[in-house]
Design a protein around this nucleic acid. Structure first.
Lengths: 159, 159
DNA sequence: ATAAAATCTAGAGTTAACTCTAAGTCAAGT
DNA sequence: ACTTGACTTAGAGTTAACTCTAGATTTTAT
């Protein structure tokens, strides 16, 4: 079974332009061509394509993905290097997810801030008296509520 | 207490160039200037800066962050809009984290693939006999191990 | 007092990752 | 046979988010 660039693009939900760009950047050395020079993807190619999509999603730059594909084409002598590459990006991805969890927590604290302001009808309830400056104690109050067992997502939910 | 652009840059671990760029894009309308025209950040400004950094980390484009800051400057009539904005990006961030978890799982399956290949000394153990194509059953074997209680991170770990 | 470091603006340059255009070839349907 | 649409390449254009340069001014340190 073989697939045109358009069919692959549809399956992966990326444009044919992007696939050609990846090819230009050396990410698709495994793709066959027919007599007329058109790309003919085969089933096994999706194993590579899945890796490319995965690394993209993980935030790995195209150049580095190209490097990994080079290692794949080089054969068994690069198995350890490939493992190390993936292990490295696994660590980076875990670190990123931890950062995003903090970001999410912050977003929820701000939601709580606006929820309580909305209920009061004004943001002034969070200000130090006579100023437009947020009272630092407000943040601490939120942290206390979380420490006392309330989940940030619960606290941030309005209705 | 007030802070120069350099001091703020250091605290937030971004360059003064970037801060000036944010200002140019309308993200810092709250910053005061001294007699000579230099930026003078005050303690309360860090409440805004924290939000900017948070939204950046969440992947929100600079233009949209500028829109949010505009809402902040507009006063209490925009409280609901601001809440909705944060709730929207909370959802987007959760969706992204779910995608990243899948990406991480895929990365770990590939680590297991290379780990087992390394132990065998060759990637051929994963190929269909007489081909260079990966046996689809290999992926299923990994999934079965995970279903039987092994964690993907355990399976992917070498040594 | 003076040198060095930090800041200012306007605007140019950079980079990554697409995204598209042009001009041509090939394939599928009527 | 012919039209329509998918594909090819080379190369230009776009966009976002910085990142830097130049030339002037201000602040800090000796």
């Amino acid at each position: 079974m073989s697939y045109s660039i358009g069919q692959v693009a549809e399956k992966l939900d990326i444009s044919p332009y992007t696939l050609r760009y990846y090819d230009k950047e050396g990410l698709l050395p495994f793709v066959d061509r027919n007599e007329a020079g058109r790309r003919q993807f085969k089933d096994n190619d999706f194993n590579f394509l899945e890796v490319i999509v995965c690394l993209k999603e993980a935030g790995v730059p195209v150049k580095q993905i190209g490097h990994f594909i080079d290692l794949c084409m080089a054969g068994d002598t690069t198995l350890q290097t490939r493992y190390d590459f993936l292990a490295d990006h696994e660590q980076q991805l875990m670190a990123k997810m931890a950062r995003l969890q903090h970001t999410l927590d912050f977003l929820r604290w701000k939601k709580w801030y606006y929820k309580t302001a909305l209920l009061a009808g004004t943001e002034r309830i969070h200000y130090l008296p006579g100023t437009n400056h947020v009272n630092p104690a407000v943040r601490q109050k939120f942290e206390r509520l979380v420490a006392d067992g309330a989940s940030p997502e619960e606290l941030g939910r309005l209705v």
